[in-house]
């Protein structure tokens, strides 16, 4: 009994820290979302989320996060597969992984600057397209401060993150599985559908959930890129915390709660699907 007490003491600092600076603050927001200014229980805040402005901000945020996570997964997968099994020279892998390590952490304000300098109105690519090919992407309706602009920017850290996570998983596919499938008459497509993808499924799903949460909670890039002109959820919440633009602090809590629910659901979906996919794992 005393032994157990002592053992727990060893992890006390960790739990105290997690409680004070992670769990309690989050709980506080969640509780705040269900309280009125007098501290009484209410569902009015959540009902307030149904205002068109907030609904549309969630809709566009979810759209951007889905698109950047999906594209990030697809493109990252293609690049990782090219390096692992695509028959390109082996030396490419090292630099690609190093670069992915860097780029996956190159988020936030400087990333926005980089894309403004590249695809902004006077950015390099914008200018070159106009001068060399006569294509004016802005006249064609492109705008960096838009759904596609933001998605394109987020991909800069989403793709490398996918590469970093999926490359080891791809390398874990044994050559014998492929050969066994082939000798049993499977085409390349059948091998992927029946063997490789199901084996990779948990990793793919987990990465997708991570990428989704990653872009759903991203504030800095969007803020530096668009100011407050694009009403995605984190930007609106940012403005709310700074200046109570919703004129109702508790509506802010409800919004933050909504964010937790969305990322939480994404990860819950992952956990459930993973559990189902993992019957065959130890």
């Amino acid at each position: 009994m005393r032994q157990i007490g002592w053992n727990w003491l060893g992890v006390l600092p960790f739990f105290a820290f997690a409680l004070l600076f992670l769990v309690l603050p989050t709980m506080n927001i969640v509780i705040g979302a269900f309280q009125n200014p007098q501290g009484e229980f209410t569902l009015a805040n959540l009902a307030g989320l149904a205002s068109p402005r907030i609904v549309s901000s969630f809709a566009i945020s979810i759209k951007i996060s889905l698109a950047s996570a999906l594209l990030g997964c697809l493109i990252g997968f293609a690049m990782a597969a090219a390096v692992v099994m695509g028959g390109v020279p082996g030396w490419i892998k090292g630099p690609l992984m190093t670069f992915s390590g860097v780029a996956s952490n190159f988020a936030g304000v400087p990333l926005a600057f980089a894309f403004i300098a590249t695809l902004g109105r006077v950015g390099l690519v914008t200018m070159l397209l106009r001068q060399w090919f006569g294509i004016n992407i802005y006249a064609m309706g492109f705008n960096l401060l838009s759904f596609w602009g933001l998605t394109l920017t987020y991909l800069f850290f989403q793709i490398p993150l996918m590469i970093l996570i999926i490359t080891p998983a791809l390398e874990g596919l044994k050559r014998e599985w492929r050969e066994a499938a082939e000798v049993l008459g499977a085409s390349t497509f059948q091998y992927w559908r029946m063997v490789a993808l199901p084996i990779l499924f948990p990793s793919l799903l987990g990465t997708f959930a991570l990428l989704f949460a990653n872009s759903f909670g991203a504030v800095a890039t969007a803020y530096a890129l668009t100011g407050s002109s694009l009403s995605i959820v984190p930007i609106m919440l940012f403005a709310q915390i700074r200046g109570d633009v919703l004129q109702d602090p508790h509506l802010g809590y409800a919004m933050a709660f909504g964010m937790i629910v969305v990322t939480g659901l994404a990860n819950l979906a992952y956990v459930v699907m993973r559990a189902r996919a993992e019957r065959w794992m130890q």
Binding site: P25, N214, A256, I260, T263
Partner: peptide, 11 residues
């Protein structure tokens, strides 16, 4: 990785 930083700091 799941709870956005903005929510934590709000808390």
């Amino acid at each position: 990785l799941v709870i956005p930083a903005i929510v934590v700091v709000f808390g």
